[in-house]
Simulated assay, not measured.
Amino acid sequence: MSECVVFQLADETALRAAVRRSSRARRLRLCLTAAGEWRLIVPAGCLLHARRDWLEGLTPFVERAWRRYCRRCAAEEAEGSLLPERLVLPVTGQDLEVRRGGGWQQGCTAVAGGAHPPVTVEAGARRLLLVATESRLTLYGDADDGLAAEALRRWCRRQAGQYLPPLLKELAHRHGFAVSEVCVRDQRSRWGSCSRDRQGAGRIRLNWRALLLPVEDAAFLCLHELCHIRRMDHSPAYREELARYAPDWPERERRLSRFWRELPRWARPAG
């Protein structure tokens, strides 16, 4: 059986946090995913039984966070449709209407007038086509909200691949960071990650969801990852490095955390 920690709430609800041990972690970290799963990140050599008092002290935090999550789920259920009426991408400057078109054949006809290559999503016999123009994203085919959300995610990831790497590279050039690779990924629990190649240059992976951030927050995310090229941890030395480029970094970090918690439903990681 996989390792877990159980938190008992005042109403006797038992919440299980799956333990994930990490050789890179320097401290215990408890988080609630967008899917409502608790995860406890634990340094590789940490003995949890020795931290029992600390874990028990987290119960009030768990209770508050769980209540917020339940309220949000209830509000989303009341909202109805999973899809947004508009899609605003500050990094690209796009403000697009999102609407449903006709059937699959109509979508195939509309592809010729699209400003971007279409996105096709298939699940068994169901299929959907997303056609983009300069001002609109139109969904053709199956009316399933899940397929439509997947089409939006794929289209946004494609856009992110075009716009996020140039943003990071420009900041790297401006501030003197060596970067050998920048790519866009679909991380489930983080905005980005950084490693180094054999020459010490950065290899950075950005979450496509950064495309949804205000421009200044997307830029800060890039600086956060760039500073890891020089300090591969979150030590005081790393924070001092980050403060050179973003003196208000604590507030910026809090904003990123808040944006992650408040991601629109269609953009949240699955599972």
Rank of each mutant, 00 (worst) to 15 (best):
H49I: 05
C31P: 01
D11Y: 08
F61M: 01
L32G: 03
A14L: 13
W54H: 13
P60N: 01
P60K: 05
L30K: 00
L47T: 15
R68W: 15
A65L: 11
R29T: 08
L47H: 09
L55G: 04
A10E: 11
R20T: 05
A34D: 12
A34G: 07
W38V: 06
A14W: 01
R16L: 02
R39K: 09
R52Q: 09
P60D: 06
T13L: 07
L55I: 02
L58W: 15
C31L: 11
T13V: 13
R64N: 02
W38Y: 14
C46I: 02
R64F: 11
V19C: 05
Y69D: 12
L58F: 13
L55K: 04
C70E: 13
L30A: 01
L58C: 12
R26M: 06
R26C: 06
P60A: 03
T59Q: 09
L48W: 00
E12A: 15
A35W: 09
C70T: 10
A10I: 15
R29C: 09
R16K: 13
C31W: 15
R26D: 04
D53A: 14
L15N: 03
R27L: 02
F61N: 01
R64S: 02
A10S: 04
Y69A: 08
R26I: 06
A25Y: 07
A34R: 07
R39C: 13
F61S: 02
R21T: 07
A65T: 15
C46Q: 08
L15H: 01
L9G: 04
P43S: 06
L55E: 03
L32N: 10
V19D: 10
T13F: 00
R24E: 09
W66H: 09
A18H: 15
R51N: 10
A18F: 14
T59I: 14
R26A: 10
R20D: 07
A50Q: 14
R67Y: 10
F61I: 08
R68V: 12
L30P: 00
L32H: 07
T13E: 13
A44G: 10
G36M: 03
V42Y: 05
W66T: 00
A35S: 15
R16V: 13
L48Y: 03
T33D: 02
C31T: 07
W66V: 04
V19W: 12
A35D: 15
S23F: 14
I41D: 05
E37F: 03
L30C: 01
R24L: 07
L48K: 04
A44W: 12
G45Y: 02
A50Y: 02
E63I: 04
A14F: 08
V42A: 11
E63D: 05
G36R: 04
E37G: 08
S23G: 09
W38I: 05
R39N: 10
W38P: 02
H49C: 03
R29Y: 14
S22D: 08
E37W: 10
L47K: 08
P60Y: 12
L47I: 13
T33F: 14
R52F: 13
R29P: 09
R67V: 15
R52K: 13
V42G: 05
V19K: 03
E12G: 05
D53P: 06
W66A: 00
R67I: 11
L15V: 05
C46N: 06
A34T: 03
L55W: 09
R52E: 14
L48S: 08
A65F: 15
W66C: 01
R52L: 10
T59P: 02
L32D: 02
E37I: 05
F61V: 12
